[in-house]
Design a protein around this nucleic acid. Structure first.
Lengths: 186, 186
DNA sequence: GCCTCATTAAACCAATCGGTCTAGATAAGA
DNA sequence: TCTTATCTAGACCGATTGGTTTAATGAGGC
C-alpha cells in the first residue's frame, strides 16, 4: 500500500512525536511507526535526517506563534492582542495536555543543538508582550517583569499539568496569570 | 587504575548526567564517560540498569527536597520555612544554571515510567506550601492558588533561564515570586 | 601476611540506532 | 499514452545501544 503525504503534513506529524518523546527519545523507528511515514518518505522530505526534522519542526512552531501571537502583540491594539494571546495559548496547548516543544528542548542538551531558535522564540515572546503592555500604559520596568512572569508562568503550568498533580491546574494557572496581567494593565 | 566509589557518590554523579541529558539522552556510554564510573561499577550498584538508576536518582532528589523544604514547610514556623524555601531553591538550582530533573522528566514520555514519584513530588510541594500559607493566615482558596503559582513559577523560570534569553531572568523571577507570596501573606 | 569479598575494568552480546539505497508505485505534463 | 519526476516501501549498513560476564583488584578483618 502507498499513501502520499505532503511535506507540511509530515512536519506536523513529526512535531507531535518530538513533543511526546523529546529529541533523543524520538527514534527513527518511533517516528515511522507513529507518523506512518516510511523512512524513504522521511529522508526524502528531510535529507538532513533527524536534526533537519527537528529544525523544521521548530521553525514550524515558531511560525505558528509568530502568526497567531507575536505579530498581533507587535502590531495590533494591545488589549485585544493580549486577550487573543490567552485564548491562543489555551487552545494550542490543549488545556495543558500538550506541552511546549521549544520549552522541552530548552531543558536538556538538545538546547545546544538548537540554541538560536530556542532563544529567539522566548525572547520574541517576552519582548512582544512587554511592548504591548508598555503601549497600553504600563511602566517599562513593570511591563518587563509582567511579561516574563506570564511567559514563564505558562511554561511552569505546562510542567505542573504534565506532572499530573491535578487535571485542572493548567486552566487555573492560566486564569491567574491572565488576571494578574489585566489587573495591572487596566 | 582502580578508583573506588560509594553508592551515594554514584547516585549524585548519575543524577547530574540525567539532569543535563534527560533520560533518553543519557546513554550508558555518556554516563560512564561523565561519571568516570565503569559499567561494571554502575551495574554493581544498580543491577536494574538505567531504569533503576533513574528511579534512585529521583528518590534522592525527592529526599533532598523533603528534608530541606517540604518537612520545614509542614512542621516549622510558616514564615521562616517559606523564607528558607526560597534560599534553598535558589541554591539548589544554582541561580537557574541547573534544572529540575523531575520537572524535565515530567515533560516527555519518561513521565510514564516514573509517573508516581513525579506526581508525588509536585503534589507534596504545593500541598506543603499551601498548608504553610493557610497556617500563616492566608484564606484557603488564595493559599492554593499562591502555592501553585510559586511552584509552577519556579519551573517556568528554569525553562526561561535555560532557554538563554537572559542571564538574570531566574533571579529576577524568583524575587518576583517571593515578593508576591510575601505581600499576600503579611 | 593472608584471606575474603565487595568492587572495578573491559571484552562481549543481541538489539536497536540513525542513515543509505534501490526498486517500484504514482501523479502530472506532453 | 507515454514519459518523467516525485514519492514510498522496506531491505540493508556500520555504529552504538542497554545489558552481561569474567577476571583482576585491593581494602579490611583475622
Amino acid at each position: 500500500m502507498r499513501t502520499v503525504f505532503e511535506k507540511s503534513d509530515a512536519i506536523a506529524l513529526v512535531a507531535e512525536v518530538f513533543r511526546e518523546c523529546g529529541y533523543e527519545g524520538a527514534s527513527m523507528s518511533t517516528i515511522t511507526k507513529r507518523t506512518r511515514l516510511s523512512k524513504g518518505s522521511l529522508y526524502h522530505f528531510f535529507p538532513g535526517g533527524k536534526e533537519q526534522m527537528a529544525a523544521e519542526v521548530l521553525a514550524h512552531v515558531d511560525a505558528w506563534f509568530a502568526r497567531e501571537i507575536f505579530v498581533p502583540l507587535e502590531t495590533a491594539e494591545p488589549r485585544a492582542a493580549i486577550a487573543r494571546m490567552w485564548t491562543a495559548v489555551d487552545d494550542y496547548f490543549r488545556s495543558g495536555k500538550r506541552i511546549c516543544l521549544i520549552g522541552a528542548f530548552a531543558l536538556d542538551e538538545t538546547r545546544d543543538r538548537f540554541a538560536a531558535p530556542i532563544r529567539t522564540y522566548f525572547k520574541r515572546w517576552t519582548t512582544a508582550l512587554e511592548a504591548a503592555l508598555i503601549c497600553d500604559g504600563t511602566p517599562a520596568e513593570r511591563a518587563k517583569q509582567l511579561s516574563e512572569d506570564a511567559v514563564s508562568g505558562i511554561q511552569g503550568a505546562l510542567v505542573l499539568s504534565r506532572a499530573g498533580a491535578d487535571e485542572t491546574v493548567f486552566e487555573r494557572s492560566l486564569a491567574g496569570l491572565r488576571n494578574r496581567l489585566e489587573s495591572r494593565t487596566g
